[in-house]
């Protein structure tokens, strides 16, 4: 009985880690799929039962590590509502695409939380990974309908935090972005029973 409980118990920190891991893979996948960096700088990696491509660029790696460690802390403290991966045309700073990762906070398993004296969820890890796999496959499939990026592009990740959130070192406030004439596509959502991740891609509709 106790064995069963320990295997199905997800703490808040564990849930945040799952979310951040998903973000890492999702961002890398988008960078590869959208061709922002040359394909030879990516390396395959097995995750969620599928093969994903991870960037080997040290700059991108360090950027993502910095971003995700801070984001994990924020998600843990429920300070983040949304993370946006923005693809920008470098020449004129125009926003071409925006991948919104909406984070919603859920209560988890209330009874188990009471018992454990901390907020925990009881969703099976296998099921969560199954859900994430489905989202990742959808991300890979978006290439079929997203417009071609035929200019020099770069990306940025904007964190939509709560207004009272402190700004740590190396971070700055950014301008909120908007895409004129945008088309939104909602991908599948997944939940760790503590956090719910909603992935939306909005792109500029071709004229």
């Amino acid at each position: 009985m106790s064995q069963q409980q320990t295997t199905n118990c997800i703490t808040l920190r564990g849930s945040a880690q799952i979310i951040c891991e998903y973000l890492k893979f999702a961002i890398n996948s988008v960078l590869f799929q959208r061709g922002l960096y040359p394909p030879e700088t990516f390396k395959t990696e097995q995750q969620y039962g599928i093969t994903l491509l991870m960037s080997e660029d040290p700059l991108i790696k360090s950027f993502l590590t910095n971003l995700l460690t801070q984001s994990e802390e924020w998600i843990l403290n429920k300070k983040v509502t949304k993370l946006s991966l923005v693809i920008i045309n470098v020449a004129n700073k125009e926003v071409l695409e925006c991948w919104d990762f909406n984070v919603q906070y859920e209560d988890g398993d209330v009874a188990l939380s009471k018992e454990k004296n901390e907020t925990v969820g009881s969703k099976e890890l296998k099921k969560i990974q199954q859900e994430i796999r489905e989202v990742m496959l959808q991300v890979a499939a978006t290439i079929s309908y997203l417009p071609l990026l035929d200019c020099r592009c770069s990306f940025d990740v904007l964190v939509h935090a709560k207004p009272h959130c402190d700004i740590p070192e190396k971070w700055a406030e950014a301008e909120p972005i908007s895409i004129p004439n945008a088309q939104n596509v909602q991908l599948k959502t997944f939940s760790t029973s503590l956090h719910k991740m909603e992935t939306v891609v909005s792109y500029k509709l071709a004229d």
């Binding site: 700059l59 991108i60 950027f63 910095n66 971003l67 509502t81 949304k82 923005v86 920008i88 470098v90 770069s154 990306f155 940025d156 990740v157 904007l158 964190v159 939509h160 935090a161 709560k162 207004p163 959130c165 700004i167 190396k170 971070w171 700055a172 406030e173 950014a174 301008e175 909120p176």
Partner: peptide, 13 residues
């Protein structure tokens, strides 16, 4: 209500 934050040394910059 949200405050938009980003890393200062992001790839776009």
């Amino acid at each position: 209500a949200a405050k938009v934050l980003h890393l200062t040394d992001n790839p776009a910059a």
